[in-house]
């Protein structure tokens, strides 16, 4: 319960800071506030993916069933947040560069993450009856987990000729001064706490589901 309360307070604080307190960035004005939402969303999707990868790895090592529950729950949250990130990203790109989609390296890596989640869940659907399902899922997740850093090396080299360098590269290289950086940090913390709560909810769902099947 404390975590929920704590997160409630931090969330409200970050909300207040984002929408009212922090000074808008030089050129972008109001829309620059979206950074404080978009970046944490992307961060949580990656965090969820990493947690799912590590959970699958430990499931392989110790093959205790609750690790696979963590991997699945974390993947659920990751899927939801990566969808949100893609939506907010493209909405914002509409303003920044005038088109909903223009192959910015950040966008492609998040989309790849979304593709990975979709692939993972389609696998999960198909193997749900199979006794080897947990093993198949975690092996695939580990393969994806190992392959994903490679894209980070590839992303900046992606179609370098077509990619216009914006005044402010909207994803991360924003010239953040101290206040903005502080607000971003708080927002990141509040979203991570939110992730933690959602993880607890999903784990609860899986535990209840397995209880149901057992009887």
């Amino acid at each position: 319960m404390i975590v929920i309360l704590l997160n409630g307070i931090v969330m409200m604080l970050s909300l207040y800071l984002i929408y009212i307190w922090v000074p808008p960035a030089a050129i972008l004005g109001e829309t620059s506030r979206i950074v404080y939402l978009h970046v944490p969303l992307a961060w949580v999707s990656c965090l969820a993916f990493a947690v799912a990868g590590i959970a699958s790895l430990s499931f392989l090592k110790k093959s205790k069933i609750n690790y696979i529950v963590y991997a699945r729950s974390s993947a659920h949250i990751g899927l939801f947040f990566s969808i949100l990130t893609v939506i907010t990203g493209s909405l914002w790109a509409k303003v920044m560069w005038g088109s909903y989609w223009n192959w910015d390296p950040r966008e492609t890596s998040i989309t790849l993450l979304l593709l990975l989640y979709i692939a993972y869940f389609s696998l999960q659907q198909i193997v749900s009856g199979n006794p080897k399902a947990p093993m198949l899922e975690s092996v695939y997740l580990i393969i994806a987990f190992v392959a994903s850093p490679f894209l980070i090396f590839v992303a900046p080299r992606l179609y370098p000729t077509l990619h216009p360098e914006p005044v402010i590269n909207a994803q991360g290289q924003l010239m953040l001064d101290t206040e903005m950086r502080l607000v971003l940090a708080i927002s990141l913390v509040s979203f991570t706490l939110l992730y933690y709560i959602l993880l607890g909810l999903w784990v609860r769902i899986y535990v209840l589901k397995s209880k149901l099947h057992e009887e």
């Binding site: 790849l112 979709i118 692939a119 696998l123 199979n130 080897k132 994806a144 490679f150 590839v154």
Partner: peptide, 26 residues
């Protein structure tokens, strides 16, 4: 994995594409 999951070709492509994307672009 796709073979053990019992799905013919479709699943394999879905699973393989995101993993293979980096080398595909390079």
């Amino acid at each position: 994995i796709a073979a053990l999951a019992g799905a013919r070709g479709g699943l394999f492509t879905i699973l393989a594409f995101p993993v293979v994307l980096p080398l595909f672009t390079v």
